[in-house]
């Protein structure tokens, strides 16, 4: 870690870079944003914006369950709950019993309410309100390691599941006729999204995390000419928003997560008129 800090000191002779918390926050942005840029493309293509939003909200229940069960590591209980939640919703969605958005909405509101009831008992909710907006300046080297592992793992899995996922997003029966196990592919994808969301929610915040997933991909599809550029630009927009938002928040002394999302939104609106017909 000290080698990385030393390199950053040499490369970034700025006032903000002299603080360790800013160095950590910058590193966190460089790890989190590509994850969201990559996963966002297929989340948008599969019309999962609402799903990922609800997934973020379910983090609250994950924390609450951790508290009830006495799990000291909230991250772990959130992660387990998030994955289980994502798999459950996907399973129900695949059974096609009612319209997907209704199902997601029912689960989402139930899980938020359950989380609030448990966490707010005895007036203790203030302790957890940080999850709502997130605080990237609190990232520790240990968290950075977890994020780095998540990024490496996601890219590796992404190399295998992208083609099947693309086919499935066009037509599941067609994918099936070509030997793609469409359901399994969908499960892998939602688990990736769940892990990414749950690992980043403490830094980005429950209210904003979905924008970080959707905005860079949405901006990218305004200008990308094919699938490869779709992902590349999405990652580039996410990275730029992350770094610009972090520095902007430092100089304006405001919330980093919100500033990141505003930059991403600005990119979206700038690219909107360039939209390909």
């Amino acid at each position: 870690m000290s080698a990385i800090y030393a390199a950053m000191d040499a490369l970034l002779p700025f006032e903000w870079a002299s603080y360790t918390f800013m160095k950590n926050a910058l590193l966190a942005m460089l790890l989190i944003t590509p994850l969201f840029g990559v996963l966002g493309t297929m989340a948008v293509d599969n019309k999962m914006a609402f799903f990922s939003d609800a997934l973020g909200h379910s983090a609250l229940t994950g924390i609450a369950l951790g508290v009830v069960l006495g799990v000291s590591n909230q991250q772990a209980s959130m992660l387990v709950f998030g994955i289980a939640w994502a798999l459950l919703i996907t399973r129900i969605k695949q059974r096609n019993t009612a319209s997907a958005d209704t199902i997601i909405s029912v689960f989402s509101s139930t899980s938020v309410a359950l989380g609030l009831v448990i966490l707010a008992r005895g007036g203790a909710f203030a302790k957890y309100s940080g999850y709502l907006v997130g605080d990237i300046l609190a990232v520790t080297p240990q968290d950075l390691l977890a994020l780095a592992v998540a990024l490496a793992g996601t890219l590796l899995v992404w190399a295998y599941v992208f083609n099947p996922l693309l086919l499935t997003s066009v037509n599941a029966s067609l994918a099936g006729s070509r030997g793609v196990r469409a359901r399994a592919v969908e499960y892998v994808f939602v688990v990736l999204v769940a892990v990414t969301v749950m690992l980043s929610i403490r830094w980005v915040g429950m209210l904003l995390i979905n924008s970080l997933l959707i905005l860079p991909a949405a901006a990218s599809r305004n200008v990308a000419k094919n699938a490869a550029w779709y992902i590349r630009l999405s990652v580039a927009f996410a990275l730029f928003s992350g770094v610009a938002g972090l520095l902007g928040s430092y100089y304006l002394n405001t919330s980093a997560g919100a500033a990141v999302v505003l930059v991403a939104a600005a990119i979206y609106f700038i690219t909107l008129p360039l939209r390909r017909k």
């Binding site: 293509d45 992404w158 190399a159 992208f162 083609n163 693309l166 037509n171 699938a227 779709y230």
Partner: peptide
């Protein structure tokens, strides 16, 4: 098909995603 018609996926992307193992984004 009821896919997302505004996605930047091209015919070439679609074909190669089906015919080859290498991820199209690479």
């Amino acid at each position: 098909l009821e896919f997302d018609h505004s996605s930047p996926v091209t015919v070439m992307d679609f074909m190669t995603a089906s015919l080859s193992r290498r991820a199209v984004w690479l």
